[in-house]
Design a protein around this nucleic acid. Structure first.
Lengths: 262, 262
DNA sequence: CTCTTATTGTGTCAAATATACACATTGACA
DNA sequence: TGTCAATGTGTATATTTGACACAATAAGAG
């Protein structure tokens, strides 16, 4: 949907090819500079930001839809992407007028008026997916209606449309609850990382602090990471060693749900 | 929907009051006789069984819909009910012909033919909820189209319609992963229970065995249960003591995710 | 009445793990 | 060469886990 014409066509005829009443929203997590971040977009006509999202094609599996939508909005493919919750309780989502007005402002850019009976004004439940992305790999060709996009620190989230705040909150709780069962560290970190980086990641996701020495001891005792010969230059300080995951031991630990720290 | 007329009306006009393309299926867990069980129904015209399910009203929150559907099919209210996954990948769910045929056989009972373009033939995603129920409290007034219903042992599940097998499998995995974070033991057991009962419940849910003595030690160390003065008669054997949960300590342990056994 | 059988109730000890904690090293820059 | 801020590393203690065996009880059979 990169031209005005295609965008207008979507508004006019989308209901023929997409399921109404149902959308997918993606919470894309990245990690950089000891901060957990979320990728957000800002649509035409709005000051508030949004999660990247879209609709499900009528003949497409749900998993395919989630991957396609993520790829369309962010050009990201082949990443860890997982469903976490379906949202259908928020009053905002039940309010047709509000839904209509939000879409109406967005599609004003392509001179399409979204009326009260337009399919985009209908009540829509949203299936939440979260993605784990290496912060540096992100390349964007924004869609026509997106005026701005970028990473946002998890603890400084800007005002958002619909119930996207609740969706992010739930995604974060899910991330927390799954960090010892799913390869969340692996997918948020680059292939080579330092101990302070992985340490700060676990602290950022879980929102508490761990003793540096005990954390390292646990990683090494379980054999989750391998020290490399390289070091990273970090300016006026001692150069930390780089590490990589030992995938065999890492996946074994995830299967057992072994906590890295308490 | 307890009369033939109401049922026929639903098939004819349901799409005006309910969201199409979207249903809710409930995996109702119970526990009895050291066995984890699931409540299943069998519709007219089918040998295969189904999960109790239904559609979401256009102006109803998702949570309200789940509770209403559970109440309509089982008369169960005010129980632990939680969304766990939305299903939209199964080929069965994408196949309109198959969907049509299944509904056609069911509604034959009320002389309604479900055609290819009927709203019930459309592709439908399903939002899975699981409920935890005290086995003994179940009272049923079955709906018109339900020919049979009852509990089914988790390890002897009968053939099922649609992708209901996958839904149950996912519900069970969810139960397992949440047993140390959510009050699953509390909601599956009666108010008073014996140590062997709670022990066998954790073994049934998690699918492994725990040392009886260490399990008891952990329960008591954490102060999760209180021994009562009563005992239960169990026939030709020593009478076990009855216990009840210490809710304060139990909830504290759940917040921390403390495992009861390994 | 007593013997048998199946089930429940209970304690101890060794091994593993978690937790608390402090000092040395490095790299840049003043 | 001294300072500063960050990284790298080890030890001792407390706690938890995991393995394990015997006594008590209830009912029914003989």
């Amino acid at each position: 949907m990169d031209s005005a014409q295609q965008t207008a066509d979507f508004a006019a005829n989308g209901h023929q090819f997409f399921l109404p009443h149902l959308s997918i929203d993606c919470v894309v997590f990245g990690y950089h500079d000891h901060q957990l971040k979320i990728f957000l977009v800002r649509y035409h006509g709005h000051e508030a930001w949004s999660l990247p999202g879209g609709f499900i094609k009528r003949d497409e599996t749900l998993t395919d839809a989630a991957n396609r939508i993520l790829a369309e909005k962010t050009q990201i493919t082949n990443v860890f992407l997982r469903q976490f919750h379906t949202f259908g309780d928020s009053p905002t989502r039940l309010n047709r007028i509000e839904t209509q007005q939000i879409h109406n402002k967005i599609y004003a850019k392509v001179n399409v008026a979204i009326g009260e009976d337009h399919w985009l004004s209908e009540r829509t439940l949203s299936i939440g997916y979260y993605a784990l992305v290496d912060y540096h790999t992100l390349i964007i060709t924004p869609e026509h209606l997106i005026e701005e996009y970028g990473w946002c620190d998890i603890d400084k989230i800007l005002p958002l449309l619909f119930d996207h705040h609740e969706i992010i909150e739930t995604a974060l709780l899910t991330l927390r609850s799954q960090i010892y069962q799913l390869p969340i560290g692996y997918n948020l970190l680059p292939a080579k990382f330092t101990l302070p980086e992985i340490h700060a990641l676990y602290e950022a996701v879980l929102g508490k602090t761990f003793d540096r020495r005990n954390f390292r001891k646990k990683l090494l005792t379980l054999g989750l990471v391998r020290q490399l010969d390289e070091q990273r230059k970090i300016g006026a300080h001692r150069s930390p060693f780089l590490y990589e995951f030992d995938l065999q031991n890492y996946h074994k630990a995830l299967e057992q749900g072994a906590p890295l720290a308490y």
